[in-house]
């Protein structure tokens, strides 16, 4: 008994607006992309014949295949870095910081930037990484380098640094959640069963946080794969990943090519998420 009856029509009607909204604004558009990617002809009209020509044309271009591969390599690299970094930070914040005050303060310092605009944060990397930027100044000040490093900005290095900064929280957040849900007694039980800390970590903590790691990796995967903002801001349009290609085709009014790349992006994402679900059952989280 609550303010809503089980299986009542009222529940259905309450659910309807949000469901319709999502169907109209997300599901239908995504299906349309698939359809458009199969259009023959040249006009924008529902009467175009269905064909796989667009895919054939796109996939026969060696450069585009390279770009897909390149995007995947970049994504895998960022996943690896944010994964390790995010786990270390999550472990430190939840397990190692003893004082609750410090934990909250550090956690806020970690999370607050996430509440601000990604675009602004990406732009902020330009003066940070530039020739006279803070990073070069700092490195020169501590004597690590003699001359400013040009290659920070408008390079893959710069893009990667910005992406790591932007997406580590995504990798870390679910791990924090999982670590918090492990009762301290489990760790202690393992220790009284003769397991030294490193074994406790491998046999108890790591397996129990695995769902968090996987979810974090999925989030980073989805975001880096479709990322184009960091590339345009920090990369200065010198480099392109899949997301940039979509934008490029769209701005060139090549709607079919845009759709093709979009569908490929979607497929990659689907493949990634399916793979992740095989590793771990997301529905089990919290159970």
């Amino acid at each position: 008994m609550s303010t809503i009856r089980l299986r009542s029509p009222a529940a259905f009607w309450l659910a309807l607006p949000a469901g319709l909204w999502m169907a109209l604004a997300v599901v239908l558009p995504v299906l349309l992309i698939v359809w458009v990617s199969l259009w023959g002809g040249t006009s924008v009209s529902p009467n175009n014949p269905i064909t796989f020509d667009n895919y054939q044309r796109f996939l026969s271009n060696q450069n585009y295949l390279w770009l897909i591969g390149d995007t995947l390599v970049q994504t895998a690299m960022i996943m690896a870095i944010t994964g390790v970094l995010g786990y270390c930070i999550a472990y430190f914040l939840t397990v190692k910081v003893a004082s609750p005050g410090w934990r909250v303060a550090l956690f806020l310092a970690f999370v607050i930037p996430f509440w601000t605009s990604t675009l602004i944060r990406a732009i902020a990397f330009v003066p940070f990484l530039g020739v006279n930027g803070l990073l070069n100044q700092a490195l020169m000040a501590i004597g690590l380098i003699e001359r400013p490093i040009q290659a920070f900005l408008y390079s893959r290095l710069g893009i990667s640094m910005a992406q790591v900064s932007l997406y580590t929280l995504l990798a870390s957040g679910p791990v924090v959640y999982m670590l918090n849900s492990i009762p301290p007694a489990l760790r202690e039980a393992a220790m009284t069963l003769k397991a030294p800390p490193i074994i406790v970590f491998w046999r108890i903590i790591l397996p129990l946080t695995l769902p968090g790691i996987v979810i974090g990796q999925v989030l980073v995967f989805l975001n880096v794969l479709a990322d184009f903002i960091t590339v345009t801001t920090v990369g200065g349009n010198k480099l392109a990943f899949l997301g940039n290609l979509i934008l490029l085709f769209y701005e060139g009014s090549q709607i079919r090519a845009t759709a093709v790349v979009s569908v490929l992006l979607m497929l990659l994402m689907l493949a990634g998420v399916t793979l992740a679900l095989r590793v771990v059952d997301i529905r089990k989280i919290g159970g």
């Binding site: 997300v26 558009p29 992309i33 479709a226 769209y250 845009t258 759709a259 979009s262 992006l265 998420v273």
Partner: peptide, 21 residues
């Protein structure tokens, strides 16, 4: 899952699809 889809679908796809619509 329908509502969660909006979380997974990247903005660039949703935006482009809606533009087609």
């Amino acid at each position: 899952y329908l509502l969660l889809l909006g979380l997974m679908a990247p903005g660039i796809l949703v935006g482009f699809g809606f533009a087609i619509l």
